[in-house]
Computed example of a mutant assay.
Amino acid sequence: MGLFFRVHRCGAVCGRPKYQYPSARIVGGTTTHYGQWPWQVSLRQWRTATFLHKCGAALLNENWAITAAHCVDNVQPDDLLLRMGEYDLATDEEEFPYIERKVQIVASHPQFDSRTFEYDLALLRFYDPVRFQPNIVPICLPPPSEVDFVGRTAFVTGWGRLYEDGPLPSKMQQVSVPVINNSDCENMYRRAGYVEHIPNIFICAGYADGKKDSCEGDSGGPMVIQEENSWVLAGVISWGIGCAEANQPGVYTRISEFREWIDKIIVF
C-alpha cells in the first residue's frame, strides 16, 4: 500500500489510528503518543503576522473538519487555517509532516446561540482534499439513533491550557473523563452555585471532584469513545466554568443529535 492508505468515503477505516498504543484545553491529563489521535486538528486564526492556534477541531473526511461554532463566530474563512497531523507545536521534526489547508466554507449551525452556546457546532470545508496518512485519519461519526454514552469513558484531546490561566503545552495532551447524564450534570453545577439548563443537545463528562478537564484552547476539539475496533466522535468541546473545578464538568455538543445536519452538508 505504500506510504499512504485510503479511507473510504463511507468511513470504513475511520477512527482507527495507524499507530497502536495501550488503552487529555487539558487539565490533569497526560502527553499523548505521536499519531495516537490522528483526527485531531489545530484550528488556527490569523493574528497580525501569522496563524496561531485558537481551538481544536476533528477531521471528518478528506474535505471537511468539525469544530465549535463559537470558535469561528464572526471570523472570515480567509482568517482560518487547519493544521492536520500536528503533534508537537514546537518542532517540525516528526515522522510524517503535518498538512495545512485554508478554510473555504464555514457552515455554523443556523441555531447557534452565542449566549447559551446551544447548537455550538460548525463544519469547515477546506480547499483541496487532504490525503490520509498515518498521522492524518478521520474520526467516525456515531449513529444518529439515541446514544447517551452514560457511564462510558471518553477521551478529550488538544493543546489547551494545562490549568486555568496556565501555560499552553507544545505536545498534544489527553485526558479520560466519564460521561454523566444531563440531569446529574445540572445538579453538580447547582452544588457549585450555578443554575444551568443543559438540554440533550449537550453531553457532559467529568468528575465530581474536578481535577481532570478540558480548558481554554481546547474548545472545538473532539471527545471520542471507543466502539469495538474504532473510535467515534461523541462530542465537540463546547463550554465549562473554569477548568477542572469540583462539580463543574465539561459540556460538549452531542454529535448524535446532529447527524442529519452534518450528513446533509459534508456530501459537498
Rank of each mutant, 00 (worst) to 15 (best):
residue 200 N to L: 12
residue 231 W to E: 00
residue 203 I to A: 12
residue 202 F to T: 11
residue 193 G to W: 14
residue 214 S to R: 02
residue 204 C to I: 13
residue 221 G to Q: 09
residue 225 I to K: 01
residue 216 E to N: 06
residue 225 I to A: 01
residue 196 E to M: 13
residue 229 N to S: 15
residue 220 G to Y: 05
residue 196 E to D: 06
residue 206 G to F: 08
residue 192 A to Y: 09
residue 224 V to F: 02
residue 222 P to L: 04
residue 209 D to E: 15
residue 214 S to H: 01
residue 224 V to M: 05
residue 201 I to K: 15
residue 208 A to M: 07
residue 214 S to K: 06
residue 223 M to A: 04
residue 192 A to F: 12
residue 212 K to W: 03
residue 206 G to W: 13
residue 220 G to C: 07
residue 222 P to M: 09
residue 217 G to D: 07
residue 199 P to L: 09
residue 215 C to V: 00
residue 198 I to T: 06
residue 210 G to H: 02
residue 213 D to V: 04
residue 199 P to V: 15
residue 204 C to S: 12
residue 223 M to F: 00
residue 217 G to H: 06
residue 220 G to I: 04
residue 194 Y to I: 07
residue 228 E to H: 15
residue 226 Q to E: 13
residue 196 E to T: 08
residue 195 V to N: 12
residue 195 V to P: 03
residue 211 K to T: 12
residue 231 W to C: 04
residue 222 P to N: 05
residue 225 I to G: 04
residue 196 E to G: 07
residue 203 I to G: 07
residue 224 V to S: 01
residue 213 D to N: 01
residue 224 V to Y: 00
residue 201 I to Y: 06
residue 205 A to H: 01
residue 193 G to E: 14
residue 215 C to S: 03
residue 220 G to H: 11
residue 208 A to L: 08
residue 216 E to S: 02
residue 205 A to E: 02
residue 193 G to C: 08
residue 224 V to R: 00
residue 218 D to Y: 04
residue 193 G to H: 12
